[in-house]
Design a protein around this nucleic acid. Structure first.
Lengths: 195, 195
DNA sequence: TGCTACATGTAACACGTTACATGATTGT
DNA sequence: ACAATCATGTAACGTGTTACATGTAGCA
């Protein structure tokens, strides 16, 4: 009944980050960006208020940091319980908003050339993602700290790899389709059967 | 310099929908839901203000509908120009927020069983999507109206198929990994090499 | 000396959903 | 008569980003 402010998913991400190790707000954002970056993001504008709220509820405790004025937050027992509670909550599906596919859908208006460029960019994107994933796997195998977490972390990387590979294959196919178009004489107004 | 209200991507989706055929606000939402549903969504709260703004800028024109009080919006020439302009704008990448992968990342805390359930649900999701895509392709080949658009529309469906297939394959792999865990005796505290 | 990275926080803004208020039309 | 669907619009709310204001610490 206590009207708790909903910080929603941010609370989960922040508590999760702190469950790995204590950190400043700044460092929380860094680790979310660097470690969860492929499937999650948070901004300072969310993180600091979330930390303040978590502190009020005693889910994290504020300690003095190495630098003047900086605070190191540590997750409490009640924070770990809260984290589990949040993890067990149903996944809130975000409504899809894919700007690339939206543009492609109106490809006739946009023009085949511009579509081609969009797909080429998507292809480059998928390739650079795959490079990133390989690097992440390398870093992961070369660390002993959180060995028990590794199988789960690798699962999330694998999801990214599957998705990026799928995008790569799709762009190849799509470019083929588009090239077939380009090689066909344009049918401006009337392509009805000539009786 | 005219301080135009940013309706952003909604403007693009609405103009796009109206570029196919004139429609009421209600019908615009229906077609966005039914046709672009796999990669886009809009709510009434966005659509009606967007239509009003487009009308003010003369990008659409309001006509009387078949029902009392209903308005049928038709895209104007300036509206088509605006649509092309919006289509040419760079794709605004949305920051990633994948609740499934976030939970999986903290799988050690969440527990192997709950992770399994999440993945099974994701699998069912991917399968139902694939069924949908096949149905969409069927409907598409059985219509002559917008034949010139079909290649582009099929491209967006193909993207969905590639992604859903990738998810399906990933879930299979992930369940395998998780089952390997479960069959191993749990290592609660000390798994250091026994000297 | 000055740049960059570390660090905290707030305020303004943009965006999007949900719920609400209202009513006509169609079919049973 | 009543339910479902079509139809329009607004208001409240939640959430998330960006920009701003402020300052410290390390290093070249």
């Amino acid at each position: 009944m206590s009207m708790q402010r909903r910080v929603g998913q941010t609370e989960l991400a922040v508590l999760g980050a702190l469950s790995v190790e204590p950190a400043t707000g700044y460092a929380v954002r860094e680790s979310i960006r660097d470690v969860l970056g492929h499937f999650w993001s948070e901004s300072f504008g969310q993180i600091y208020p979330a930390l303040a709220a978590l502190e009020r509820q005693d889910h994290v405790r504020r300690g003095v940091g190495s630098r003047a004025g900086s605070s190191v937050f540590t997750i409490t027992e009640s924070g770990r319980a809260r984290l589990l509670e949040l993890l067990l909550e149903p996944v809130h599906a975000v409504p899809p908003r894919n700007g690339l596919l939206l543009r492609l859908f109106f490809g006739r208006t946009l023009g085949a050339q511009a579509c081609r460029e969009l797909i080429v960019a998507a292809r480059a994107d998928a390739e650079s993602q795959l490079t990133d994933y390989r690097a992440v796997i390398g870093e992961l195998s070369a660390e002993e700290q959180h060995a028990q977490d590794h199988p789960y972390w690798l699962l999330t990387v694998s999801a990214g790899q599957h998705t990026a590979t799928a995008m790569l294959e799709w762009t190849t196919e799509a470019l083929g389709v588009l090239d077939d178009f380009a090689s066909r004489p344009p049918v401006a107004a009337g392509s009805r059967d000539p009786k």
